[in-house]
Design a protein around this nucleic acid. Structure first.
Lengths: 252, 252
DNA sequence: CGATATAGGATTGTCAACAATTTTTATCTC
DNA sequence: GAGATAAAAATTGTTGACAATCCTATATCG
């Protein structure tokens, strides 16, 4: 298998990237646990877009049956983090430019609503929890821990949705935040979450002041800023399979 | 269980409700086709909330294997139209009051964004297509075809999302519209889509005039009107299983 | 009579072998 | 050597049997 060059993309998933600290061979784990691990690995970018997720490999990594892995892959596909190509396996999704734009536009809509409601419901304790996340995020950035920084940046947004108290919006945002991470992995941004840290504080402060309008504005600006700093020139169009296309003329 | 009274809830799914006109026994159909059929049956309220969807029954209805049915049920659960209770089967979901409120709040957020964008992109042809849907909806209501009226009312909202041109918002709205139908099935509204018909025209006209602000306002009013006319007093709380709860004390 | 325990039947969950497809490797021709 | 052809290996998709769980009906006891 595998030109072993490893130019940095689309290599096969190694068990180590997924199964976590303890070597694979553990007792059977629940679907949810496996989902969370793979989800985490993708969102924290230990698995690059395009990476093949072979069923056998995943079975060994987690020590479970193929049926279970298959279910998890179906769920990941539903979360738009994995693309299932019939008869040829599961791959970490490679969002298109179009998809990326739609995700960020949707985020502006969803997070505007979230922030508006969060402004009303914010209490001292909630703000303290938010601030704690932001401090942790800052520390992670300082010490160069990219994975933690990504996770905490996402946590900030998701916590706002939690404060807003709407589970539907929360679940939408969960999907959008995860997909955003994949988008940023695909379309660059050198120091992605770094630039956003101050924005986060701006939003948080507006919320503390109960200034919903300002919070909404800052959130929208924040999201637009990220989108505008993506490098969409680098779209890796799926190299259309000429053999398949030309092999079946329109007639038959 | 099985009080055969059939007060109108939670009866078992009959094959006829699902397999459509032709008697079940057809050639193997794709997952998507089965999904669409069950989805349609739920949204058009031929399957009441709480109805059990037995695997064997579905297999016979569609003439496919259990594995395939299981996959479809997983997808329906993901769409929040079906609830999977471990070891005891799949049931048409019974949204809680809380869930219902969240769905409508999310709709206001998503559809406000949709309408705003749709106002910019609306062309003559698009408006004509919208108007056609509304006329069909009106006719369906006139002739008392509730199922068609439900479908067309949903189509109006989904078509707006299509016009807005954002696939992410479209998929969110698709979920929300379907869930709304289930919510209305659960919490009443005598003539649900009837009252909304005029609202639809009001929104459409504002969009034709390119008046985004008015369209947003009318859409939000429309959605709030529906929510406020639901009968939340009738919540059928899941009768908590005392045996299970008390049978396992915190210790063991 | 009501409640609890038990056995039987039905339903869901899981696994391993089999079939179908794709990818790789090897071979042959120009 | 480039390209095409065909066998071999590897991977995905499906099926059917088995195990585990739950529901119902019957029997037993207070």
């Amino acid at each position: 298998m595998g030109r072993n060059q490893d130019a940095g993309l689309a290599t096969a998933a190694s068990a180590k990237s997924l199964a976590g600290g303890r070597g694979g061979r553990g007792q059977p784990v629940a679907d949810e646990a496996i989902f969370t691990r793979v989800h985490g690995a993708i969102v924290e970018r230990r698995l690059e877009p395009g990476t093949k997720l072979g069923e056998e490999a995943l079975c060994e990594a987690f020590g479970v049956s193929r049926a279970q892995i298959r279910r998890v892959l179906l769920n990941l596909a539903h979360a738009k983090l994995v693309e299932l190509r019939p008869n040829r396996g599961a791959y970490v999704a490679q969002p298109s430019v179009r998809e990326a734009r739609h995700v960020f536009e949707a985020r502006r809509a969803v997070e505007a609503a979230v922030v508006e409601r969060a402004a009303d419901r914010m209490t001292e304790e909630m703000f303290a929890a938010l601030a704690a996340i932001l401090r942790e995020e800052h520390q992670a950035q300082e010490r160069g821990d990219r994975q933690a920084a990504i996770r905490l940046s996402g946590d900030f947004h998701l916590r706002l949705a939690e404060i807003a108290g709407n589970e539907v919006l929360s679940s939408f945002l969960q999907e959008l935040v995860s997909r955003s991470s994949l988008i940023i992995a695909t379309y660059g941004m050198a120091s992605d979450s770094e630039c956003s840290h101050d924005d986060h504080w701006t939003v948080a402060r507006a919320l503390q002041d109960g200034d919903a309008a300002a919070a909404v504005t800052h959130m929208k600006q924040h999201l637009r800023f990220i989108e505008e700093h993506l490098n969409f020139a680098a779209e890796v169009e799926p190299p259309v399979d000429l053999k398949t296309i030309l092999g079946a003329p329109a007639g038959s």
